[in-house]
Computed example of a mutant assay.
Amino acid sequence: MALTDSGRVEAFSDGVLAIAITLLVLDLRVPARDDLHGASLASALSHQWPAYAAYLVSFLTIGIMWVNHHAMFTQVRQVDRPVLFANLALLLAVSFLPFPTHLLAEYLTADGRDAHTAAAVYSATMLAVGLAFSVLWLAITRTAGLLHAHLDRAAGRAALRRFGVGSVAYAGTVALSFVNAYATLAVHGALALYYCFDQLATSGRAPVPEPGAE
């Protein structure tokens, strides 16, 4: 199986994540003077708070994911095809995130089922992102040959459990979406803060012998 240096994967991933996080700002619209209809600019800006809230949560999610993605790949020496495809699946989910962010910003304050539907689409996308990140971790740690240092199974499972807590919570937000869209967005903000903490195992590693070493 062909192996390649992880640097190209990191560079490509950084580019995709940078584009996705930049596209989020397109939802922040400057109110046109002709649309004020006698209202103040401050009032018009305040009415756009759903866009600001959705932007902030999605920005934090992608930004913190970039930090954790970087931390993950500092442990990786080389990658194979399963890792490449797992990483592509993660980037697919992340690059889609600007769409449900815009959807939620537009319909968060809507009446009836529309707000719930928008929140559910947003939550389902976040769930896909969380699951894809866990799959990437599994692909990377399934063989010691891809890592700079050996990661024992207990440490690998501990990190996976920490990822899994977030994924279970994301699944819960899909159900919460049909109860309260505002609470759903708040929970997503809390989950972004949860992932601020290092989810990767930091112990249980031993140096991997170089090929041919005794």
Rank of each mutant, 00 (worst) to 15 (best):
M1N: 08
L3K: 13
L3F: 15
T4Y: 10
R8M: 04
G15M: 08
L17I: 14
L17H: 08
I19Q: 08
I21D: 01
L26Y: 10
L28I: 09
P31A: 15
D34K: 10
D34V: 12
L36P: 04
G38W: 10
S40N: 09
S40W: 06
S43G: 11
S46R: 11
Y52R: 04
V57W: 00
S58K: 02
L60T: 07
T61F: 01
I62K: 01
H69E: 02
H70L: 04
Q75M: 15
R81Y: 05
R81G: 02
F85L: 15
F85E: 02
L88F: 14
L90F: 14
F96G: 04
T101I: 03
Y107Q: 13
L108V: 13
T109E: 07
D114Y: 10
A115T: 03
A118C: 06
A120Q: 00
V121F: 13
S123N: 07
T125S: 14
M126S: 04
L127K: 04
L127N: 00
V129P: 00
V135M: 11
L136V: 09
L138K: 08
T141Q: 03
T141Y: 05
H150Y: 12
H150S: 06
L151M: 12
D152N: 15
R153S: 15
A155W: 01
R157C: 05
A159W: 03
L160I: 09
L160R: 07
G164E: 00
V168R: 03
Y170S: 04
A171M: 07
A175F: 10
A181W: 04
A181K: 12
V187R: 05
L191K: 06
Y195A: 05
Y195F: 15
C196K: 05
F197V: 12
Q199P: 09
Q199W: 13
E210W: 07
